[in-house]
């Protein structure tokens, strides 16, 4: 049972693919395209998520503007009704530098509490859930993605993808840079921090850097920053490895249409949706998944859903 919780099942022998008669559209007695396009206009989870994301980010702004003391600070470090919350990669950089300089002993109890709290919170709610449910750059990037997909559809540009391992290079690289230069180098390039602080404290010239990245994502490589660069996302994906909240895949409802991979930020994590790839009747999406719910919205057979890992075992 424990083994099921930790393992992706990727190295097991694949299940036998379903025959045409076993596919959901045949069972319903409708045509494949009719079945596939049934949920094209469904945006339930996306709307809930955008609502939450905008609400939380506006809460920061409103808290400061009207001095409400509800959610103070910014996404680089904040206080929710008095409880401190730290940005994890900011904190990791600081810990890396301060353990070489000895400053680590001066950090306050509030810092440690804030760091542990945020790790526990996002451990429960699915690691990179932070990305799609909280990060304001993710929201902007989703809009740029719409432009990108339109341009690809019109054959104006060609899709460019890179190796997903790049994000590890950036994660380790930015940590090393912090120690070598004794500066929080990433914080000056951090899309989350720049956008969040621009909203709360007023715009800065660094928004041009955000704009440049959005243009790059719109015209060159889809979701480049979130997919390959952002070390905050990478930190959360480590945390999310063992998260109970995840997207659950049920092979018996799948029609191999691949609509989910088309909308996904990290399609490699949905490897089991292709014909003949699934090795188990049930798979959970891996730790790069941001729990954004786009696949849940689009899946015509409802084979993908939010779920709590191990819940059935507990019951």
């Amino acid at each position: 049972m424990l083994n099921d919780y930790f393992s992706s099942g990727k190295n097991k022998e694949p299940l036998k693919p379903k025959s045409k008669d076993e596919l959901p559209h045949s069972l319903l007695g409708i045509s494949y395209t009719e079945w596939r396009d049934a949920k094209k206009k469904n945006h339930k989870w996306r709307n809930i998520r955008w609502g939450f994301l905008l609400f939380m980010n506006l809460l920061f702004v409103v808290s400061f503007t009207f001095d409400l003391s509800v959610l103070e600070g910014s996404l680089s470090g904040s206080r929710l009704i008095g409880f401190y919350l730290m940005d994890p990669f900011n904190a990791l950089q600081l810990l890396a530098i301060s353990s070489t300089t000895g400053y680590i002993g001066h950090l306050t109890m509030n810092f440690w509490i804030g760091l542990i709290t945020i790790f526990l919170f996002w451990f429960i709610f699915g690691g990179r859930g932070y990305c799609s449910w909280m990060c304001p750059y993710h929201f902007l990037s989703e809009l740029a993605e719409k432009v990108h997909l339109y341009l690809v559809k019109k054959k104006k540009i060609r899709e460019r993808t890179y190796n997903i391992g790049l994000k590890l290079v950036f994660f380790i690289g930015f940590l090393l840079l912090a120690v070598l230069t004794r500066n929080l180098v990433f914080e000056d390039l951090n899309m989350v921090g720049i956008v969040s602080k621009a909203m709360i404290y007023g715009p800065s010239l660094l928004l041009l850097w955000v704009l440049a990245m959005l243009l790059f994502e719109a015209f060159v490589s889809r979701r480049f920053w979130c997919r390959y660069v952002c070390p905050i996302g990478t930190t959360w994906s480590f945390v999310g490895k063992l998260s109970p909240v995840a997207i659950k895949f049920e092979h018996d409802k799948c029609g191999y249409c691949l609509e989910c991979q088309k909308v996904c930020l990290v399609p490699h994590e949905l490897w089991f949706v292709q014909r003949g790839k699934a090795t188990q009747d049930v798979h959970f999406v891996g730790s790069d998944c941001t729990r954004c719910g786009l696949c849940v919205d689009v899946c015509p057979g409802n084979a993908l859903n939010y779920a709590v890992k191990g819940a059935s075992a507990l019951v």
Partner: peptide, 18 residues
């Protein structure tokens, strides 16, 4: 604190501003 440590120790959250 001294500027050398301040520049990396400050995580730029803005709580002091608020």
């Amino acid at each position: 604190i001294n500027e050398k440590d301040f520049i990396y120790g400050c995580i730029k959250c803005g709580l002091c501003v608020q």
